[in-house]
Design a binder for these strands. Structure first.
Lengths: 103, 103
DNA sequence: CGTGTAAGGAATTCTGACACG
DNA sequence: CGTGTAAGGAATTCTGACACG
């Protein structure tokens, strides 16, 4: 199975926290807290304001659902780390495969 | 030929003017002026701040190119109106076709 | 633990105007 | 015509803290 790296609009960090709040239904307080708990990683402007991508918005909605299900932040983080771990392994596999093809 | 109505990320108005300025390389002054000249149509937050979509960003870049080519704002607007006129005709055509199919 | 809130300050954006050309 | 800028004000966002539970 092949894994691709996403790009373009979905991953451009251009959304302020106020808009993110409207889009997700979460309070700004909640969104900042999830960042504190390492569940979300916005970029910052020079002035320090947070900037989110549509991908981040999707992740926030996902987080909101899991919180509703009674999951705690550390559990959600653990789950995400597992996923990215698997993803990294697959990417390494692809890179190795690419190198082999060059031989 | 079939025309489709776009949707999702590309058309959600979520980008503030500061980010729009960074993304396009245009000054905020320029972006506001093009709105005054009816070339771009951002939404507004309750408080009155402008919100642009990625589609708007593309349009701004397009406008910037045409301005560089020496085109004037009213010419660009005229050009856009022609395009949307053609598009509307085609959409009406589709709607008519759909109605005929139901008969 | 997760979230609300008041507090004070800083960054961002807004409008109308004057300037230049 | 198209754009820069200084001006004053309003909207937005930031952080650290206290509160509740």
């Amino acid at each position: 199975m092949w894994i691709s790296l996403p790009s373009s609009y979905k991953d451009k960090k251009v959304i302020s926290i106020g808009i993110a709040s409207e889009l997700t239904g979460l309070s700004e307080r909640q969104i900042r807290y999830y960042e504190e708990r390492k569940l979300i990683f916005p970029e910052r402007s020079k002035g320090g304001t947070r900037k989110y991508s549509f991908g981040d918005i999707e992740r926030l909605v996902d987080i909101a659902n899991k919180m509703e299900d009674g999951m705690q932040t550390f559990e959600i983080r653990r789950e995400e780390m597992k996923k990215s771990s698997v993803r990294n392994k697959m990417l390494r596999g692809q890179i190795n495969a690419a190198f082999k093809m060059r031989e």
